[in-house]
Design a binder for these strands. Structure first.
Lengths: 346, 346
DNA sequence: TTGTAAGCGTTATCAG
DNA sequence: CTGATAACGCTTACAA
């Protein structure tokens, strides 16, 4: 393998010192025009590019921020990444992405690997397995090493770092209120197990909305799906569980699902059971992605403004990276949500 | 910001030399048990982790591979990434991902940034804009610097690097043959402009399949969508174009779409125009993703085995990275495709 | 105007 | 068994 050209090689070729080459390439006025031109021409010809690794070592800065997320397929995450990239690039930062695949071990490994030199800070959403195990030592260690973290989406509140979240409870209430207003009498929720905090909060919003309207929440109508790890046949299990829900409670006329997939699957199952949407059954999802838009009927959903979340997260992180203060207060920014009405509700 | 602890600091604290610390932490037998224990305990307590940047500089190896893709939302890409990660991790490599967002400039910038020290090699799919401009200097420069590249999906054949592809022509033929066998008499294709090579090849397969059955391809039935850059209203444009196609050619009874989105949109438009699927119209897509599976009716599609593609790409790349030979032959691996029959065909 | 040298954190070699 | 030193590629203060 050919090696990239270095200052040293240029210096040797041209019979000058490394320092001179370095300065010449930075257009330093210390160096004579003549020498500069010679060196610059040579460097250009050989397509010299400074070695980032060496620069990082010297500056103790990588100008890179690391994103650590559980999965990459979600439209929501891709929007967040877009937002992060937008402000990061504007400020001269690059972005690298690591995936945990919802696994604790992969999260830890990725984190350690990135934390040990590759990046200046993290923006992350925690894996389900980590939430389940409630083991956050890797986060605390990273923070203790002086590397800033910004959490979004799935956050854990007792970690000392900035957070960008939405008000899950309020957002869920918006959705359920809409169903109630649309005259649904028996509203079910398809949610996650409680260890996933966004699921828990959305469930809480559902319950509160019902209570606000003096409807007694029925445990039977709260389906907590266990999908700790996304496996191949996991969709089938999901379908089965939702089907049972409908069979046991045939008069359900409204469903609030805490994510896109649950919502789409609900519609599919319901259609197979002969329900007309939105006539017999109204469905609202959470997170606006391709699935929601392209479903038929298209899905009414709570949108999270992922791009905005990403932008804010990146801004917070970069600010912290570049701040001199060793201990500034941790901030939590709440991003607005909105209900997007489509065909799955009346 | 607190700094991470270094060998030097440990050495000073413990009153030994840096070299001793380094060796002790590597459990070198040169060092006495006593000293080793003392140093290891101390390092553990302070959570010492070697600085990757320094290691990379020393070893001229980063043990990470860079993935450069146009977009992150596609199920296909996420499968490829999974495949890459699987074999990369097994061989002790980490993976970082850069996004071009289909933009030439971002592709170049990302490439240069990663190429200058951060990674040992690339796995990439080229952006549409790059294909359009046909400017591949960044690829050639990277290769000339001795950094191996493996291309997949959207490849350009005259670049000297390994490639992992599918036989787009054959795959398209499979799909169109299926439609013909299912008695479709007027089959349209929704494809990309020709500069996207996978689109061009799939169009070619469509034409060949028709010819094989002595059906004369009609230019009117070949819709080449221009979606160089994915903008917000791009779906609307797509819908309009497809709608026109159906209005002008009302007797279309089969559609082959070169990607998921085109296929889903076709079904949506057709349903709005009152077509029943698959009774009046049969649709086959390309690339098996969430959209295909969750569409209603679910979509018959050509699957690309993205994970396999990723695995092979990673294996090829790592082999090249670790090979001593400065010039080994470039290889092109063709991965099988398969037609997955669902509800959108009879 | 140019060169020298220290330093970023690590490892490997060689001397003590 | 332990320590000093050079090297990876680069920047920069300082010396020539």
């Amino acid at each position: 393998m050919k090696r990239k050209i270095t200052l040293k090689q240029i210096a040797k070729e041209l019979g000058v010192s490394i320092g001179t080459v370095s300065k010449a390439l930075k257009d330093s006025k210390e160096i004579s025009e003549e020498t500069k031109e010679k060196i610059q021409a040579f460097a250009k010809y050989y397509n010299y590019k400074p070695n980032n690794i060496a620069l990082s070592l010297k500056n103790r800065k990588t100008k890179t921020i690391g994103i650590l997320i559980p999965e990459i397929v979600h439209h929501f995450f891709s929007k967040v990444i877009q937002g992060i990239e937008k402000v990061a690039n504007k400020k001269g930062y690059n972005v690298i992405i690591g995936l945990s695949n919802e696994s604790f071990d992969k999260e830890v490994i990725n984190m350690e690997m990135l934390a040990s030199g590759s990046i200046d800070g993290f923006i992350m959403s925690i894996s389900k397995e980590t939430l389940l195990q409630q083991d956050y030592h890797h986060l605390n260690e990273t923070i203790n090493q002086g590397m800033p973290i910004v959490m979004f989406d799935r956050v854990v509140s007792d970690i000392r770092c900035d957070k960008v979240i939405i008000n899950d409870v309020e957002a869920a209430k918006k959705a359920v209120n809409k169903l109630i207003k649309n005259n649904c009498k028996k509203i079910a929720i398809i949610t996650t197990k409680d260890y996933v905090n966004v699921g828990r909060l959305r469930t809480q919003g559902y319950v509160e909305a019902l209570n606000d309207h003096e409807i007694a929440p029925e445990p039977e109508l709260i389906l907590k799906v266990d999908d700790k790890l996304v496996t191949e046949d996991y969709i089938d299990v999901l379908e089965e569980e939702i089907k049972s829900l409908f069979l046991i409670n045939p008069d359900i006329d409204g469903v609030f699902a805490v994510n896109e997939l649950y919502a789409i699957t609900t519609m599919k199952v319901a259609k197979n059971l002969g329900r007309k949407i939105p006539e017999d059954l109204q469905v609202i999802g959470f997170t606006d992605g391709v699935l929601s838009r392209h479903a038929s009927p298209s899905l009414t959903t709570v949108t999270q403004y992922g791009q905005k979340i990403g932008e804010v997260a990146a801004a917070l992180l970069i600010e912290k990276i570049e701040s001199e203060a060793s201990e500034d207060p941790v901030r939590t920014v709440v991003i607005e949500t909105e209900l997007i009405e489509r065909e799955s509700t009346k």
